[in-house]
């Protein structure tokens, strides 16, 4: 896994944030130094980790060049990771950035210094493919794509791959799809079907550890705890731990 990895899917609610924060917490337990960037104006990762705390400095201020990235870093004891939080103001930022020279690499430049302090930087993207997500992609070498098999569509994957291709041809940056993460699954037979569809259409790897749907994941979310602390023995907790190991390898 390279230094910066984005969790990306323009489809909402496929467990991008849940997977990102739990994998991050798991890696931290393995002794890795992790920075998580919440790049979603909904600030789901920020709220899942810190509750309703508000932050003076956020990724918004980094992207508007008001502060340096390191000034926005906050530490989470319970997750064992550093975080650059988000806020709702971020929803208006694309207009501010759109006319800038080098608008597509503002995040990359913002993270240039701070990233070397970490083993890995994780970006939790919003469910859209606008300028913010383009910034995440330009900053990343790798991406992972969480999908929810019950609502899976090949069209969605097609759109992400199309975006990667456009970024390669238009902006000269090649991104490696590290793999697809199967999350929130209920029915093993549907998972098999999805994997078959993927295999017959693409050569993208699918991670072997699928995350089952479990109410405990939601509970951990509301208690602002990683699954490894809230319920490590729960099947979803175990799957997340194994997924983190598999992703790191």
């Amino acid at each position: 896994m390279s230094n910066i990895v984005s969790f990306i899917n323009q489809k909402g609610g496929v467990a991008k944030t849940t997977t990102a924060i739990n994998v991050a917490a798991q890696w931290s337990q393995l002794g890795k130094k992790i920075l998580l960037i919440d790049l979603d104006p909904q600030a789901s990762a920020t709220r899942a980790i810190f509750g309703d705390n508000e932050f003076e400095n956020t990724i918004y201020d980094v992207l508007t060049s008001e502060i340096e990235a390191k000034e926005a870093v906050v530490h989470s004891e319970s997750f064992g990771i550093d975080v650059i939080p988000s806020e709702i103001m971020l929803s208006g930022i694309e207009i501010i950035l759109s006319s800038k020279f080098g608008r597509e690499s503002i995040l990359k430049r913002g993270l240039a210094e701070v990233k070397d302090n970490y083993d890995i930087v994780i970006i939790d993207c919003s469910p859209s493919l606008g300028l913010l997500t383009v910034n995440a992609l330009i900053a990343s070498k790798d991406i992972v794509i969480p999908v929810c098999p019950e609502y899976f569509s090949l069209k969605g994957i097609e759109l992400i791959l199309e975006t990667l291709k456009n970024i390669h041809t238009g902006l000269g940056h090649k991104i490696n799809v590290r793999g697809i993460i199967i999350s929130k699954y209920r029915n093993r037979r549907i998972v098999e079907q999805v994997i078959q569809d993927l295999r017959s259409n693409y050569s993208i790897p699918v991670f072997n550890n699928y995350i089952p749907d479990s109410i405990v994941v939601e509970e951990a979310h509301h208690k602002h705890l990683p699954m490894r602390k809230f319920s490590p023995k729960n099947p979803a907790g175990l799957a997340l731990a194994n997924l983190a190991m598999e992703m790191w390898a």
Partner: peptide, 21 residues
């Protein structure tokens, strides 16, 4: 149609470059 999202803003448009003030 070219999606402007994927145009390199550091490259010239025609023979001109974006300059921010």
């Amino acid at each position: 149609t070219i999606n402007p999202l994927f145009l390199d803003s550091t490259k010239p448009i025609g023979d001109k470059s974006i300059t921010n003030i």
